Simulated scan of single mutants.
Amino acid sequence: MEVIINYNGQALSVEVTVEVYEYLDRADHKTENLAHEQRRHWDGREFDEYIAFTEGVGVYSETPEEYLCRMETLHDLMAVLDTCTEAQRRRFLLYALDRLSLAEIGVLCSCSKVAVYQSVEAVRKKFINFFENRLNE
């Protein structure tokens, strides 16, 4: 997809992925909605942080560069998880994301607490190796 960017008063045509184009399009719509809201509440009495927050423009707004970095990191992390067995991945995600205990995961997966621990540790070691290799690059 092609987007036009104004840089130092000069219009530049840049080729971007569909993902970046959609992100920029959503940002334009949010900015436009906020401008409409500001015009409706020109005296400032009704324009508060709640309106700004509901329009998606809070104190912090992720930049396109931060979004792309986050998506690249997520892609890399998912690649590490793809190297794991299905059981390791399932047990690790239950432990890391759902905050279940090793015993609870053992009951859910019909295995021992030790097997869950070994799976979680194996995935953890893969992540450690991934981050160590990334730092050395």
Score class of each variant (00 low, 15 high):
Met1Asp: 13
Val3Pro: 02
Ile4Gly: 03
Asn6His: 12
Tyr7Lys: 14
Asn8Trp: 07
Gln10Leu: 08
Ala11Pro: 12
Ala11Val: 11
Leu12Pro: 02
Val16Met: 03
Glu19Ser: 11
Glu19Ile: 09
Tyr21Met: 05
Tyr21Phe: 14
Glu22Ser: 10
Tyr23Cys: 05
Thr31Arg: 07
Thr31Leu: 10
Asn33His: 09
Gln38Arg: 09
Arg40Ile: 07
Arg40Thr: 06
His41Val: 01
His41Lys: 06
Gly44Leu: 04
Glu46Ile: 01
Glu49Gly: 11
Tyr50Thr: 10
Phe53Leu: 12
Gly58Thr: 02
Val59Cys: 13
Val59Gly: 15
Tyr60Trp: 10
Tyr60Lys: 11
Thr63Pro: 03
Thr63Leu: 06
Glu65Ser: 14
Tyr67His: 06
Glu72Cys: 12
Glu72Tyr: 11
Glu72Phe: 10
Leu77Pro: 05
Ala79Leu: 14
Asp82Lys: 15
Thr85Gly: 10
Ala87Gly: 04
Gln88Thr: 04
Arg89Leu: 01
Arg90Lys: 15
Leu93Gln: 05
Leu94Arg: 07
Arg99Asn: 07
Arg99His: 09
Ser101Val: 04
Ile105Leu: 01
Gly106Glu: 02
Ser110Arg: 14
Lys113Asn: 04
Lys113Cys: 03
Val114Pro: 01
Val116Ala: 01
Val120Cys: 09
Phe127Arg: 03
Asn129Val: 11
Phe130Ser: 01
Glu132Val: 13
Arg134His: 10
Glu137Lys: 12
